[in-house]
Nucleic acid binder design. Structure first.
Length: 470
RNA sequence: GGCCCCAUCAUCUAACGGUUAGGAUUCAAGGUUUUCAUCCUUGCCAUAGGGGUUCGAAUCCCCUUGGGGUCACCA
């Protein structure tokens, strides 16, 4: 849509390794890739990078898909598993072998380690020395060779990155003939990434900055195989508050943990899209706006720090805008069942203004719905004055004789009547009443609470407090 | 350590050579509210340092410093 008609369809991908759950850094690059594909009416593909003898990658893949479903990102086509494409990789390895672009290396792991140690001792860069690059003799017995690719030994490799710009690497500084297939025949990461990205038609690679230094190696593979290079975008990392790479220890990194903590998918997405990207002064973005406005070429170059306060603010914003029906439905998973409550509109209208998360909201709902089991000592001291008993009794009497009480305003009128009759301020009745209703001095308006729980329950709670006043 | 990247309020960011350096979050104060919160208003807070280039630099160049990433038969 934003690309000229002659240009090929944009195809992006998200390619996690199945080491566990989807973390928020991964979710952000996935979001960026997804947005860019959607904006261009292209495709967003999912691929699981499980070439290693990986443990239960089915589970991990399931976890990732589950997170995608919760967050609302869809992917096109089937999920690709690299573990199921081994034959394919073998074909391309054989091809490189035949063309003399790759070769078998019989150097053992221990020999290699020794070499590297020597090099380090001499303050040289540890690297494979190419000893089997042009080997024609008889291979040593009993050694399963690895396959190495013939990487250029001089010159430069330039990465054109949509975020960083042109970055030129000196081949001598960074490359050696790296391994593309292990001794057991399985292909390695930098090889399969390039092969798969090319074969899947990925033409825009948006991924984490931690992959940047792999890019020259992948370019070597692309070129050896004669594949066309994609556009690269290396998205700066998200750091923790210590400025380090986000890790499992930094609180919640599992996307599904955000669900458990009561965050809305929209809020999390909105939060993540503003980490490293912006559109003027705009802070709130619907998914539609993101799709319309996002462009990886305008992603910032610097890493950003994860700050939970802003996520809370955004989440509060999104909760305020949710319908009460939706909220009531969502709340069930957080231990507050209010779906069939006949006063849920009144309660939720009042409560959703003050909640940061659905967990907050559930707690608040339950605080209103269930009678207090104890009275906060400080609140008691502050709320209960010598005349409180008389005030509460007067109010209870007023309620008993009142006929129709439905809305908060009905209850408010009763309070007003007592206040006027006794010539006292609102605080004289509001504070002890609040204590009676919820056991503490914070929460929604007491009229809202009373309207929610009804006259009978209100009277019961007042009675309970009265038994504590003597 | 080698290579690479980065650098505006505490944090996310705006500024694409000319602005009193703007917005948002947080924090503080005031207003609204019977309470707490929301909401509204106001306030505090930044161009890492040093050299250039230019009439003019947050912006371009160099150096320093600081931070990060990566250097596997992991991905």
């Amino acid at each position: 849509m934003h690309k000229k008609r002659l240009e090929p369809m944009v195809v992006t991908r998200f390619a996690p390794s199945p080491t566990g759950y989807l973390h928020i850094g991964g979710l952000r690059t996935a979001l960026f890739s997804w947005l860019w594909a959607r904006r261009n009416s292209g495709k967003f593909l999912l691929r699981i990078e499980d070439t290693d003898q990986s443990r239960n990658n089915e589970e991990a893949a399931k976890a990732i898909v589950e997170a995608f479903q919760w967050i609302g990102l869809d992917h096109d086509g089937e999920i690709l598993y690299q573990s199921k494409r081994m034959g394919l990789y073998q074909m391309y390895i054989d091809q490189l072998l035949e063309e003399g672009k790759a070769y078998k290396c019989y150097m053992s792991k221990t020999e290699l380690d020794a070499l590297r140690e020597e090099q380090s001792a001499r303050k040289e860069r540890p690297r494979y020395d190419g000893r089997y690059r042009d080997f024609t003799g008889t291979p040593p017995k009993g050694v399963d060779p690895v396959i190495r690719i013939k990487a250029p030994t001089k010159g430069t490799i330039t990465v054109f990155d949509g975020i960083k710009g042109e970055v030129v690497f000196n081949v001598d500084d960074i490359l050696d003939d790296f391994i593309i297939a292990r001794a057991d025949g399985t292909p390695t990461y930098n090889f399969v990434v390039a092969v798969d990205d090319a074969l899947m038609g990925i033409n825009e690679v948006i991924r984490g900055d931690d992959h940047f230094s792999n890019t020259p190696k992948q370019i070597v593979v692309y070129e050896a195989l004669g594949f066309k290079l994609p556009a690269f975008y290396h998205v700066p990392m998200i750091h923790n508050s210590n400025g380090k790479k986000l890790s499992k220890r930094d609180g919640a990194t599992d996307v599904m943990e955000y669900k458990r903590m009561g965050y809305q998918p929209e809020a999390l997405l909105n939060f993540l899209v503003r980490l490293g990207w912006s559109h003027g002064d705009q802070e709130i973005f619907s998914l539609e706006e993101m799709i319309r406005l996002f462009d990886p070429n305008t992603i910032n170059k610097s890493a950003s720090i994860y700050n939970p306060e802003k996520l809370d603010w955004l989440n509060g914003h999104y909760i305020k805008n949710l319908s009460n029906d939706t909220l009531a439905h969502e709340l069930e998973a957080y231990g507050a069942d209010i779906r069939s409550h006949d006063r849920k509109e009144i309660l939720l209208d009042a409560l959703k203004e003050r909640a940061k998360t659905l967990v907050d909201l559930a707690t608040m709902v339950n605080e209103v719905l269930s009678a207090p089991t104890e009275y906060d000592a400080k609140a008691f001291k502050k709320a209960i004055k010598p005349d409180s008993k008389a005030v509460l009794e007067a109010f209870a009497g007023k309620l008993k004789s009142a006929a129709e009480l439905h809305l908060p305003t009905d209850y408010h009128a009763q309070m007003e009547a007592v206040v006027n009759a006794m010539e006292i301020g609102f605080g004289k009745i509001g504070m002890p009443l609040r204590l009676a209703l919820v056991g503490k001095l914070a929460g929604p308006g007491v009229d809202v609470i009373m309207a929610t729980i009804g006259k009978t329950e209100t009277l019961a709670r007042i009675e309970t407090l009265l038994t504590h006043l003597d």
